[in-house]
Amino acid sequence: MKKELFKFLIFTVLILVAPLAFKGGYLMNVLVFVGINTMLAIALNLLLGYCGQISLGHAGFFGLGAYLSGILTATHGLNPWLVMPLAAGLVGLLAYLIGFPILKLKGHYLAMATLGMGIIIYIVFNESVDYTGGPSGLSGIPALSIGSTSFDSDVKSYYLVWAFTLGVCLFSLNLANSRVGRALRAIHDSEIAARVVGVNARELKVRIFALSAVISALAGCLYAHTMTFISPASFGFNFSVELLTMVVIGGLGSIYGSFLGAALLTLLPEFLRAAHDYDIIIYGGLLMVMVMFMPGGLVRSVPDAVRKLVRLKGGAGNA
């Protein structure tokens, strides 16, 4: 447990000093998105990596958070800090209610149903033009502020978003190493055995689904207020698949893996500008390659490979 806390402190320090390394340049803006995507990847990972339940509709919860926040602040002029818990709570409630019928389904059927749910939400964003502005988007969302400090620059947004992201990280790490986290992993490994020792699998799956939706919606709120403009294109099926790719690349069932996957997939397009049109091929290829050759994700495969290499060298030295 001490080791876990130590790891988290190191991670926090690295995040806090990162802006110094980039001197507030253009990359700061990208790092804000790394933070938001990390939150989203952790949310999906709690459901998929820990509990073993897939969702292909998480972009929908992300979008609902963003639109609720956007509409209530930009159109109705409510205070963003008030709206944030309200939006997250509403999305959580919705997920909780959908959760009961949807999580009765397993495997392929669950994937299809969550995919359908995500697409319905996306269609609503596009079609309810009066509220969302339709395909052309919603603008004029205010930036968050505390007192007279407005989080309107990249560096300020960075610290704001990462404060939330680190909170979500710590929250999820605690959860993973607790009684409830063990029950989640037990459901993943053998649902029937978990039920036999008294884990109410049905209820717990729904709660994690709702928690995952709350975190996604929170990320949506932050996204809306840092971007100040949102449009449906950011919340479609492709983004759900991108989130899935982050989780699978980083490592199913690893919180730091989610960060790694999110960072990689967010930064990669920035460094490979030329590769812009290749992104979906790359995601598709990565998904297949990871599942086939590195099912543990980078967070496990890389240390394994390093260990093997060291042992190989050690062995050669002895021979």
């Binding site: 292909l56 698949v241 290829g285 297949m288 599942v291």
Partner: peptide, 23 residues
């Protein structure tokens, strides 16, 4: 070639294949 053909792995593989072909 999938070593562990669990439903989740199959969903991920076929989704990967799908967007790969599309791309």
């Amino acid at each position: 070639p999938l070593r562990k053909p669990t439903p989740i792995n199959l969903v991920i593989i076929t989704i990967g294949g799908s967007i790969f072909i599309r791309g």
